[in-house]
Design a protein around this nucleic acid. Structure first.
Length: 110
DNA sequence: ATCATGACCATCC
DNA sequence: AGGATGGCCATGA
């Protein structure tokens, strides 16, 4: 693959600490491609085949909604993992999204 | 190079 | 509140 673009996405996603979530748009912005938010999601699609495993369950849309939960092995896996990490999920969306939101730029800049 | 697709986002109705 | 539309851009055929 060697798709640099995806690699960047994976890097960020893997940097997401447990109990935290981020949005596709935030990642896209951090990559300097704010308009390529869809590509981030698409990258996550490859995440299933990527290694090491990418915690795609920590990535939600701008509203904290678990848009991609149906792309997991099981639709319940996403919120199950999040709950396991201490992230409350209700109605397919992250509770206290603003609180658990993790800004990629916060770690990238350094 | 062109067409079609997409785990999004913003806007309009 | 919820559905529809357009735009954006990378990837694959």
């Amino acid at each position: 693959m060697n798709t640099n673009f995806y690699e960047q996405v994976y890097e960020i996603v893997r940097l997401i600490p447990p109990g935290r979530v981020t949005s596709y748009g935030a990642i896209a912005k951090s990559l300097g491609a704010a308009k390529s938010s869809r590509m981030v999601g698409h990258a996550m699609l490859y995440a299933g085949t990527a290694y090491p495993s990418v915690p795609a369950h920590r990535v939600v849309n701008s509203s904290g909604l678990l848009t991609g939960k149906f792309h997991f092995k099981t639709p319940d896996l996403m919120e199950a993992l999040l709950n396991k990490e201490g992230v409350e999920v209700k109605n397919d969306k992250v509770v206290n999204f603003k609180k658990v939101f993790w800004d990629p730029q916060n770690e990238i800049i350094v």
